[in-house]
């Protein structure tokens, strides 16, 4: 069992409506898993359960063998092992790019200013934004902001990265650079779960595609299987809709 992320019987209700209705799936080390599905199917909710930003109603999430739901688990220590990138970037507007990246290094890992900044600069360099270290988010383009957000997660040396529609708030011409960074990460061996509608990227880079609808996983397989020969009629409709 080399699963880095293992989700077991995950359920989540908001009030009386059940949004996730029993999710089981696992991600192996260095795997890039794409999650697709119609709006409202629970993709974001599932992803947010994977670092307990959302509290599951039932089920278990194991990351690197540690049960996130177990009583003794230090969730904050685990979270820095689980990088997350948001659709809206969520950069801290009152801090520079470097400040955004170093905050958790200093507060969670307790690193000194100099060490944190060295790590932060290296992380910004990895996303190609070393020279923007001193800029505030409002002075950066959307694509640059998202890359800073990726650097913020990367600097903590996560075991796995979760991406929730990282490019859907971006103008088309800015998408490429962000996807480029994600491609580099994949090549460097990062384990990733990506919720996205970038189908071309999915076809090229994904190891596996997971199709979700109504809070359940209906089908999963290689890009060739899901895009070329979907079995479930709903997958077929969805994929057909996308490629039109």
């Amino acid at each position: 069992m080399s699963a880095l992320l293992d989700v077991r019987g995950l359920r989540k209700s908001f009030g009386t409506t059940e949004i996730l209705r029993g999710i089981d799936f696992s991600v192996a080390a260095q795997e890039l898993v794409f999650v697709i599905g119609p709006s409202g199917s629970g993709k974001s909710t599932m992803l947010r359960c994977c670092n307990r930003l959302e509290e599951p109603t039932a089920g278990h999430v194991f990351v690197d063998g540690v049960d996130l739901m177990a009583k003794g688990t230090d969730i904050n220590a685990m979270r820095r092992r689980i990088g997350m990138v948001f659709q809206a970037f969520n950069l801290y507007p009152h801090m520079t790019a470097l400040g955004n990246v170093t905050l958790a290094l200093r507060k969670v890992l307790g690193k000194g200013r100099e060490e944190a900044e060295a790590i932060g600069i290296a992380a910004l360099d990895r996303v190609g934004l070393k020279e923007k270290a001193g800029n505030y988010p409002s002075e950066l383009s959307g694509g640059q902001q998202q890359r800073v957000a990726i650097a913020r997660a990367l600097s903590l040396e996560p075991k796995i990265m979760l991406f929730d529609e990282p490019t859907s708030a971006l103008d088309p011409e800015l998408v490429g650079a962000v996807l480029g960074v994600m491609r580099d990460l994949k090549e460097a061996g990062m384990t990733m779960v990506v919720v996205s509608h970038e189908m071309r990227f999915a076809r090229d880079a994904a190891d596996r595609i997971v199709f979700m609808a109504d809070g359940q996983i209906l089908e999963q397989g290689s890009p060739a299987e899901i895009f070329g020969n979907p079995q479930n009629p709903r997958t077929r409709d969805f994929v057909g809709e996308l490629s039109r």
Partner: peptide
């Protein structure tokens, strides 16, 4: 302060108090 700010900070491992003092209150 937008909820995404909490999400971002908590996802990097900051606890409630650290998020409040470093991210939320300054804004």
């Amino acid at each position: 302060v937008r909820k995404g700010q909490w999400d971002a900070a908590r996802s990097t491992g900051l606890d409630h108090w650290q998020t409040l003092t470093s991210v939320i209150l300054p804004q």
